[in-house]
């Protein structure tokens, strides 16, 4: 059975540990801006976490001219083949949820890949179990 990254907003404290963990895991450094996951505070007790939905009918995959985006069948995540990406930015415009990002230095697409099958760092480090991988 494929595991799912599950978000339970009521447990989220907006501590932003998930963002830090994500940055360290993917970029090797701490920087909240480069995380592929974001947390938002809407008010007391109203926190939300936002990351890629790994859509079935993903617009990003459809628009990519060079097939740099494809689904990893074992994790279900849509992954970026960084070597293939030409940095045209089309995927980030096409994503209706704003979940695609681009590396500021080379324009290569950046998105959540569910950490390639390991327990996603965001879930592993979430202190309040708002993020779970199960």
């Amino acid at each position: 059975m494929q595991k799912t990254l599950t978000i339970t907003p009521s447990r989220c404290t907006s501590c932003r540990t998930c963002e830090l963990a994500c940055s360290f895991k993917h970029a090797g450094k701490g920087g909240l801006g480069i995380a592929r996951i974001r947390t938002f505070m809407f008010g007391e007790g109203k926190n939300q976490i936002l990351t890629c939905f790994q859509c079935d009918e993903a617009a990003c995959v459809k628009v990519c001219p060079v097939e740099a985006l494809s689904r990893n069948e074992s994790t279900g995540a849509i992954e970026v083949n960084e070597a293939r990406c030409i940095g045209c930015g089309l995927c980030s415009i096409a994503c209706p949820f704003g979940h695609m990002n681009h590396d500021g230095t080379n324009g290569i697409a950046v998105k959540c890949d569910l950490c390639g099958g390991d327990e996603p760092a965001c879930a592993a480090f979430c202190p309040s179990r708002a993020l779970e991988y199960r």
Partner: peptide, 22 residues
């Protein structure tokens, strides 16, 4: 703006339980 819209949507429907990914 796409991201902002997502946030707005979530805010207005905040009583939703959880978002299952995948």
């Amino acid at each position: 703006c796409s991201q902002r819209k997502s946030i707005d949507t979530i805010r207005s429907a905040f009583d939703m339980k959880a978002v299952g990914l995948g």
